[in-house]
C-alpha cells in the first residue's frame, strides 16, 4: 500500500496548501466546494457509523436540523455562543437519538421498519420547524445574526480560509472517530447484532446498549455537522436541513461511495457534490432541473451496477488483483 499512502500524502499536502495555491479567481470557488465536501463527508461518515451495522436511518435530517436550529436560535435570541449552543445541540440530538433508538431496539424495529420510523422522525422535525414559524421563520428559514466583524466567539468569519481549515479538521476528526469505532470491540459486537440479534444476545452482547450507543454517537456527530454547516452558510432552512430530502441525500452519497470503508463516505460525498456543481455550471440556468435529473439517473445506474459503492468496489478490485498476482498470504488487508 506504499503507492496509495504516497498518493494520499500528496493529496493531503495539496489540501493543506490549497489557500496558497496560485489558482486565481477559481480559488474562492474551489474553497467553497471543498468546505461543503468536508462538512457533508463528515455528516456522511456519522451516518455510516449506523448504516454499516444495518441501522439504515432515513431520517438523519432530524439530527441535522435539530442541531442547526438549536445553535442558530440560541445565538439569535440570547446571543449564546455557538460553541455552547453547539454543545446544547449535541445533547439534544443525543437525547432524540436515544428516544428513537431505545424503543426501536426494545421492540425489535429493524430493517425497512427502522428506516420508515426514522423517516417519520425526520419529517416530524421538519414539520415542527415549519409549524413554529413565529420564532423559527417557518419555511422561509432563518439568517444568523451577524456579529461585529470576525469573531471566534460567534464562529463567524469573512474569510473562507478559516472555515476551510476548520472543516478540514472536522473531517479528519470524523475519520478518526470512524477508525476508532472500526477497530474497537464495539464493532464486532455491532456486526454480530447486525447479522443476527438473537444470536448476539445469546452470547452475552447487550443489544440495546450497543444500538443506543452507536445511534447517540451518530446523532451527536450529525448535529455537530449541522452546526458547522450553519455557521458557514449563516442561514438555516427546514427543507435543506431536515426532512426526507436531505436525509436521502446523505444516504445516497454514502452508499455511492461505500459505507463499509473509511474513505467511502468521503469519496461518495465528493463525487455527488462535484457532479452536481459540474452539471450546474455546464447546464447553468438554461435548463432548470436538468442537472438534478442527470444526478438522479446516475444514482440509479450506480446502484444497479456498483452495489458495493464506488470506493468499495475499487478497493475489492484492487485486493482481488493483488491476491491474483502475489503469493498467497503476503497480500495485506485492503
Amino acid at each position: 500500500m506504499t503507492l496509495a499512502r504516497g498518493a494520499g500524502a500528496v493529496l493531503l499536502a495539496l489540501l493543506l496548501l490549497e489557500p496558497w495555491l496560485p489558482l486565481g479567481d477559481v480559488r474562492q470557488y474551489l474553497l467553497h466546494v471543498l468546505i461543503q465536501i468536508f462538512v457533508w463527508a463528515f455528516i456522511g461518515g456519522a451516518w455510516s457509523l449506523m448504516g454499516r451495522f444495518g441501522l439504515v436511518s432515513l431520517g438523519h435530517g432530524a439530527f441535522l436540523g435539530l442541531g442547526a436550529y438549536t445553535a442558530a436560535l440560541l445565538w439569535n435570541f440570547w446571543g449564546l455562543t455557538p460553541w455552547l449552543g453547539g454543545l446544547v445541540a449535541v445533547l439534544l440530538a443525543v437525547l432524540l437519538g436515544g428516544l428513537v433508538a431505545y424503543p426501536c431496539s426494545r421492540f425489535q424495529v429493524v430493517g425497512h421498519y427502522f428506516g420508515l420510523v426514522t423517516l417519520a422522525v425526520g419529517e416530524v422535525v421538519r414539520l415542527l420547524i415549519i409549524a413554529e414559524r413565529d420564532w423559527t421563520g417557518g419555511s422561509l428559514g432563518l439568517s444568523l445574526k451577524p456579529a461585529q466583524g470576525d469573531s471566534l466567539l460567534a464562529m463567524q468569519f469573512a474569510d473562507k480560509t478559516v472555515f476551510y481549515y476548520a472543516s478540514l479538521l472536522l473531517w479528519l476528526a470524523g475519520l478518526l472517530v470512524w477508525r476508532r469505532v472500526d477497530r474497537s470491540m464495539a464493532r464486532s459486537a455491532m456486526e454480530a447484532i447486525g447479522e443476527d440479534e438473537t444470536a448476539a444476545a445469546s452470547v452475552g452482547i447487550h443489544v440495546t446498549r450497543f444500538k443506543v450507543g452507536i445511534t447517540a454517537l451518530s446523532a451527536a456527530l450529525t448535529a455537530v455537522g449541522g452546526v458547522a454547516y450553519t455557521q458557514y452558510i449563516s442561514y438555516v432552512n427546514p427543507d435543506t436541513l431536515a426532512g426526507i430530502g436531505v436525509s436521502l441525500r446523505i444516504v445516497f452519497a454514502v452508499v455511492l461511495g461505500g459505507m463499509y470503508s473509511l474513505l467511502g463516505p468521503t469519496v461518495g460525498t465528493a463525487l455527488t457534490i462535484a457532479l452536481s456543481e459540474y452539471l450546474r455550471i455546464v447546464l447553468g440556468l438554461k435548463f432548470i432541473g436538468m442537472a438534478e435529473t442527470i444526478y438522479g439517473l446516475l444514482l440509479i445506474l450506480f446502484i444497479i451496477f456498483l452495489p458495493a459503492g464506488i470506493y468499495g468496489s475499487l478497493a475489492s478490485l484492487v485486493t482481488r488483483v493483488r491476491r491474483g498476482t502475489m503469493v498467497a498470504g503476503s497480500a495485506g488487508p485492503a
Binding site: V251, I288, G289, T293, I303, I304
Partner: peptide, 30 residues
C-alpha cells in the same frame, strides 16, 4: 430498475427507487 437488483441488499433497492424520486421530480421541473 427493480428486476436487475431483485437479489441485492434491501437498502440498495430502497435507494434505487429513491434515485427515481430525484429523477422524476427534477425531470418534471425541467
Amino acid at each position: 430498475i427493480i428486476s436487475p437488483i431483485l437479489g441485492s441488499a434491501a437498502v440498495n433497492q430502497l435507494l434505487a427507487t429513491g434515485g427515481l424520486l430525484f429523477f422524476l421530480q427534477s425531470f418534471a421541473t425541467f
